[in-house]
Amino acid sequence: MKVKPKHQRLVLVVLAAAAMIGAVLLAMWGLQDRAAYFVTPSDIAAGKAAPDKAMRLGGMVEKGSLKRDPDGVTVRFTVSDGKSETPVVFRGITPDLFKEGSGVVAEGRLDPNGLFVADNILAKHDERYMPPQMANEVAAR
């Protein structure tokens, strides 16, 4: 294939534009069902969170709710935002700042029975840390 020198720049410009449009389309396609929404227990109670979709659950670990299964590696606890509560199950080693009464962000999915299955639990090593989304939720009340 031969491109006339005169048109070469135009071809390159069009290609660059096509690449950028392609990137945006690809990104939009990817984001459609792969972005994890931040939810609170109230959102789940209100039915705003669809089961089996990646999401992040934020709130406080309810006091007295933290239990370990007999296998020693599965923990169950309740996350509360002061209005509603969501039961959470997590298999793995919890971060050290994860305690009853402390803020937590759990990444995972909601199963059809309303149990939140966490793949990952985030806690920050910061004295003043509060998940920012959570701070908005608390401040909004």
Binding site: G82, R128, M130, P132, Q133, A135, N136, V138, A139
Partner: peptide, 9 residues
């Protein structure tokens, strides 16, 4: 600002 001060309830 995202991290507004959180008043104790």
């Amino acid at each position: 600002p995202a991290e507004e001060e959180i008043r104790s309830q």
